[in-house]
Structures are given as structure tokens and as C-alpha cells.
């Protein structure tokens, strides 16, 4: 019995919503796995902030070309139709509304759509990269995240307690337990694991979950 989705399964679920022809940016880490689960018959073009559209899979070990890397500084490959461009063009694609979807990780997401995913507080060396740019401009900003922290506290909250990446930017959350939309400053439950009741899910969520019509079962293959 599935008690929670793995990161791979969350990535699979997020991939099902990427339509044919979409331009997509995947954040560093778990979201990168979304590219592996494109449904057959759909062609999405992946964007990486450092200046590539339409790159391919990772090369075999030893075959890396270090001039051909993604935003996570991992080696990628060329595909027919790949395009290179400089950083100002790359972020024009991001902020200018040209990307269809950005899928990012999260420390916290608020019911207002506020996202915190770049800083866990004032200690250590701060680093932001492209996170604050990516939350603006993509037509849809989705998040892949565990529903709760490692010590069981809700990551879906009324107001973020950590430094914000962006205000009112997230529109959909693929959590380890549910699929939740953000509409008019509220969490709206769309899908949940069939083994959980809405009440169970609510107890693990830091803000009210609205239900509008039937809540679908969140069913994901073993991966």
C-alpha cells in the first residue's frame, strides 16, 4: 500500500500535465527527473538557464563535454534542434512569459502562492541562482515537494516563515500525498492518495484545503 509518493513518482505525476509543444524549465534536483517521464506522443522542449533549449539526456560517463552542461552543472547532450543563447536571452525567455511551465522544489509554499525555496535563514553562505527569476514569467509555476518536512511539519502553510523566493507565484503543487491547486489565495485539493481521507490530509497541511467537486485518486505507477 502506497503511504507516500517517492520523488520519482512525484516527477512522473508532474510530467503527465506537460502538454505537447510546451517549453519547460525544470529546477535543479528532483524536478530534473520530470524529463524522464514525458508521455508518449508529446514533445516538450526543455530550457536550462545557462543557455540551452532542447537538450538531451546525460551522456555516458567519460563522454562529458564540459561546455555542454545544464543549470545544475551536470553534463547533457545535443539533440537535433538544440539552440544555444546567452544569459540575457535565456532570462528574457524566463521573465518575458515565453516558458509554459516551470517546475521547482520548495521549502515552503503558502496558500497565497508565495514560495520559499532559496534560503533556510541567515546562517551560512546565501545563494539564489535563477530561482527568483524562474518564479516570474512562466505561464504555470508548479512545485514538487514532500507534503511535510523530515520532522513531520507541514510544508504547505498559511504564510511562509522562511525568506521568500517570490510572492503569489505558485499555481500547482505535486506533493508526496496530493495534487493541490492554488486559486484565489486558497489551497484547492484535486487529487489525493486513495489510502488517505481528506481529514488525514488536512491534519498534515498548514492551511485549509478546499474541495470543489470530487477529489480524484492520485494513482502513480511503481517506478
Amino acid at each position: 500500500m502506497t503511504t507516500k509518493l517517492t520523488p520519482t513518482q512525484m516527477a512522473w505525476r508532474a510530467a503527465q500535465d506537460i502538454t505537447d509543444g510546451a517549453y519547460v524549465n525544470l529546477g535543479i534536483g528532483f524536478p530534473e527527473m520530470v524529463a524522464r517521464f514525458q508521455p508518449p506522443g508529446r514533445e516538450a522542449i526543455f530550457h536550462t538557464e545557462n543557455g540551452i533549449l532542447g537538450f538531451g539526456e546525460a551522456p555516458a560517463a567519460g563522454e562529458e563535454d564540459w561546455d555542454l552542461i545544464n543549470a545544475g552543472k551536470k553534463a547533457v547532450t545535443l539533440k537535433p534542434g538544440t539552440a544555444f543563447f546567452h544569459h540575457a536571452d535565456s532570462f528574457a525567455m524566463v521573465r518575458g512569459g515565453h516558458l509554459d511551465v516551470a517546475i521547482l522544489g520548495a521549502y515552503e509554499v503558502a496558500e497565497t502562492g508565495d514560495l520559499a525555496n532559496w534560503s533556510t535563514g541567515p546562517r551560512g553562505v546565501p545563494a539564489v541562482g535563477g530561482a527568483m527569476d524562474l518564479v516570474h514569467g512562466a505561464k504555470r509555476v508548479a512545485v514538487i515537494t514532500d507534503h511535510v518536512t523530515k520532522d513531520g511539519r507541514p510544508k504547505l502553510v498559511q504564510r511562509c516563515s522562511l525568506p521568500l523566493t517570490g510572492v503569489g507565484c505558485v499555481t500547482r503543487i505535486y506533493s508526496s500525498l496530493a495534487v493541490i491547486d492554488i486559486e484565489d489565495g486558497r489551497f484547492v485539493l484535486r487529487e489525493k492518495l486513495p489510502t488517505m481521507s481528506v481529514e488525514d490530509l488536512q491534519s498534515l497541511t498548514g492551511a485549509e484545503l478546499l474541495t470543489q467537486g470530487p477529489v480524484a485518486d492520485l494513482i502513480v505507477p511503481e517506478l
Partner: peptide
Amino acid sequence: VFTELYLAGKIELELVPQGTLAE
């Protein structure tokens, strides 16, 4: 290298979002 100097207060950092830096 950077981390040690920064935490020791020996190098100044201006942190800029990546797209803002480019622009």
C-alpha cells in the same frame, strides 16, 4: 575557498538573482 573567507568576514558578497545579474 570562498566559503571560508566569507564566513570569516574577509570578503564582501553582493548576491544578485541570476537573470538580474545578466540584465
